[in-house]
């Protein structure tokens, strides 16, 4: 092979790699991303059962009900609307009524109850998920200052 051919081989090989990566990324981005929604968003537009979303807001005080075993249900609110969430698993250490929370999951067919497979809460008494803060501020429902410190999560399969 000549010098030029060799260089060409490397360039073609590199291009092939980039093309593969681009295709994989495009494919993954079209299917494997999770959108963030507030209870008001969900009221305006209810996603189908196949859409995985992150629901963020505050845990409405007085709605946390522990069921049998590890089952728990609570309402997530953005101080305008609220959505009932059920979850089977251990809640994060800092899950508390009145505090910020993000629940990941979906609405099963024909159900108004959000089934969470993951619940994220804060790692610090001052912390609230950033998305939640942004949404509350946008809607003028923000009353307190916070500082970010971390998010704990419990992952459920």
């Amino acid at each position: 092979m000549t010098r030029k051919q060799k260089r060409l081989a490397i360039v073609v090989c590199g291009m092939a790699f980039i093309a593969t990566a681009v295709i994989l990324v495009m494919f993954a981005l079209s299917s494997d991303i999770t959108f963030f929604r507030t209870p008001s968003d969900l009221l305006a537009e209810r996603p189908g059962p196949s859409t995985h979303i992150r629901l963020g807001g505050l845990v409405e005080p007085g709605t946390v009900v522990r069921g049998k075993g590890t089952q728990v249900s609570f309402d997530v609110t953005d101080r305008k609307h609220s959505v009932k969430v059920v979850y089977d698993g251990i809640l994060p250490d800092l899950f508390r009524a009145g505090q910020g929370v993000v629940a990941e999951g979906n609405f099963p067919t024909g159900s108004d109850v959000f089934v969470a497979d993951t619940v994220l809460a804060k790692h610090d008494e001052k912390y609230m998920p950033k998305e939640v803060v942004d949404e509350l501020k946008k809607n003028g429902e923000w009353y307190g200052d916070t500082s970010t410190a971390g998010d704990a999560r419990t992952a459920e399969k």
């Binding site: 993954a28 299917s31 494997d32 991303i33 959108f35 963030f36 942004d134």
Partner: peptide, 11 residues
């Protein structure tokens, strides 16, 4: 606001 999780990276 979206989040890109493990499925993206696995894929």
């Amino acid at each position: 606001k979206i989040s890109v999780g493990p499925p993206f990276f696995n894929l």
